[in-house]
């Protein structure tokens, strides 16, 4: 599977080590299929390599264009949010507008949020650690876009609990503010307080019990470091949530996206095929508690 050529339309610096690339297909007929929320693409920095990257927004994903400028990038445009953790992600993070990257995808199982009116069925709880907010942004935008009343307020309870190392590492601050303005219950917490920070300090798990979530009919979407997801899921389960309605996004080394290369195995799962989004209940609960080391 050859990568499709995409042009970098914009490179937005989110934090000191996180960038969002807005990509548009060089030719419309080469564009990859529109991703579902939570699916990922393999991005190629030519001459460096390829890495699995979350889609944080796409022109098809968002229920409406809520002023994020995607319309200017054109049809089939897509935003990937990347943390600079190695040679490939570094090359992507510094890709300048106008340069070309390769895109293969979309791969894997998403959150499934397209399939129903989740906010009408119960509370929706989004919990993100650091860059874990990336594959959740489009879900929140979609749910918000489809479930607002005449006055533009959310018709249901949407909790967004985001954690970061410190204030400067909070990604998508403008989106968080926008969701709060729509009526979402947004709470941001940091590990370390810095001058000027007046919000919560501590782990995201500490924000779950006081949030006032109604566990009956609730759904939770969790993405962040594995240990954070494990304790978040446990805290949500303790509230009385059905573990099969708690979704986590699991990560392993990925090199093909097609189930051929064997790298992304996690016990019975081939994560590029069976994940990255999986329900926490059953075997996955056990997998997340079992140490692979």
């Amino acid at each position: 599977m050859d990568p499709a050529l995409y042009r970098v339309v914009a490179n937005r610096r989110e934090t000191s080590d996180v960038s969002s690339l807005t990509l548009a297909p060089l030719k419309a007929e080469m564009a990859v299929a529109p991703p579902r929320h939570g699916q990922f693409n393999m991005l190629t920095a030519f001459g460096v390599g390829e890495a699995a990257i979350s889609v944080s927004r796409s022109s098809r994903l968002s229920g409406r264009d809520s002023g994020q400028g995607l319309h200017t990038a054109g049809a089939g445009s897509i935003v990937h949010t990347i943390r600079d953790v190695g040679a490939v992600t570094h090359a992507l993070c510094v890709a300048s507008a106008g340069s070309l990257v390769g895109v293969r995808g979309p791969f894997g199982q998403g959150w499934g949020a397209e399939d129903g009116d989740w906010l009408a069925e119960g509370d929706v709880v989004v919990v993100a650690g650091g860059i874990g907010l990336a594959p959740l942004r489009s879900v929140v935008d979609d749910l918000a876009g489809r479930s607002t009343d005449a006055s533009g307020r959310l018709r249901g309870r949407l909790f967004v609990i985001a954690g970061a190392r410190e204030q400067a590492q909070v990604i998508f601050a403008d989106d968080l503010a926008r969701w709060a303005a729509l009526g979402a219950i947004v709470s941001v917490t940091v590990d370390v307080s810095t001058p000027g920070w007046t919000g919560h300090v501590g782990l995201v798990t500490a924000q779950i019990a006081p949030a006032g979530i109604d566990p009956g009919g609730a759904r939770a979407l969790v993405c962040g470091p594995e240990i954070m997801m494990r304790f978040t899921a446990a805290a949500l389960e303790k509230l009385g949530m059905d573990p099969s309605r708690i979704f986590v996004s699991l990560e392993r080394n990925m090199q093909c996206g097609l189930g051929w290369c064997g790298h992304c195995q996690l016990g019975p799962l081939i994560l590029c095929r069976d994940g990255p989004i999986v329900a926490y209940g059953g075997a996955v609960t056990h997998l997340m508690r079992e140490r692979e080391r």
């Binding site: 190629t44 030519f46 001459g47 460096v48 390599g49 390829e50 090199q255 093909c256 051929w260 290369c261 064997g262 790298h263």
Partner: peptide, 22 residues
């Protein structure tokens, strides 16, 4: 069946993707 997928830039300037048993 595990394989690595690796990109290299050759002296010609060409970029090559190969897969190799892992």
């Amino acid at each position: 069946f595990c394989a690595d997928v690796r990109d290299t830039t050759e002296l010609s300037g060409q970029v090559v993707r190969r897969r190799r048993w892992a």
